[in-house]
Write a protein that binds this DNA or RNA. Sequence first.
DNA 1: TTGACATACTGTGCTTCACACAGTATAATG
DNA 2: CATTATACTGTGTGAAGCACAGTATGTCAA
Lengths: 109, 109
Amino acid sequence: MANTESLENVVLELRRGVITLAALSQLGTEQYGYSLLKQLSDLGLEVDQGTLYPLLRRLEAQGLLVSVWKLEEARPRRYYIISAEGKKILPKMKKEWAGIVSVMDKMLA
Amino acid sequence: MANTESLENVVLELRRGVITLAALSQLGTEQYGYSLLKQLSDLGLEVDQGTLYPLLRRLEAQGLLVSVWKLEEARPRRYYIISAEGKKILPKMKKEWAGIVSVMDKMLA
DNA sequence: TTGACATACTGTGCTTCACACAGTATAATG
DNA sequence: CATTATACTGTGTGAAGCACAGTATGTCAA
């Protein structure tokens, strides 16, 4: 049945678009990959490890995040936090998101 | 500058996830590709031809849409309309969308 | 009537990226 | 001491939007 499959596909696509924004918005305070993963899932956004870690690296490569290894703790963790550039972009992203939500509100009304 | 580039990327991704839902939601009434394109853009969702036409074909292949050629009009047009299966799935998609929106509300608060 | 523009659809190739899957390794818990 | 949670890295693949290109008809003004 293509039924559930199509639904899942669309849900994946919907979530996909949102992950970057979600991650960036949560990194106003320092976090490492695994803790961010847990936090996102606590808030209701299930993300795969294989999705989040590459995303974090990508965002760092784009200059929206910075990261540091911390070795003092229980075990080595790579902490990420939003960069100055990320801080500039984030509100713009939020605005774009709000725009899309309002467009969809009209459509689904 | 990676700045504007990153922003555009994210915006593209955000919009990307939403296009399927948008298209499907508008095809409660019969439309052909070009008219749907115009309608989406009127409502504020700019979609490329090279994105929409393949999407319509894909949705038809998945059984969520049905299409017919109409030759009587000014020029041949392929009309799409939501299928019975599409009608079953659409409300579920809307629900998923609402869920994502509410999750993002929490995150961006 | 001819040139420009809007309309309307098709097709190819590229790039990006989430996800699946696999692997490594350490802490904590019982 | 074994199992589970923690924490990160890496490869391969498939899906899909988009850029780009192409075809062709209508409409309307100069």
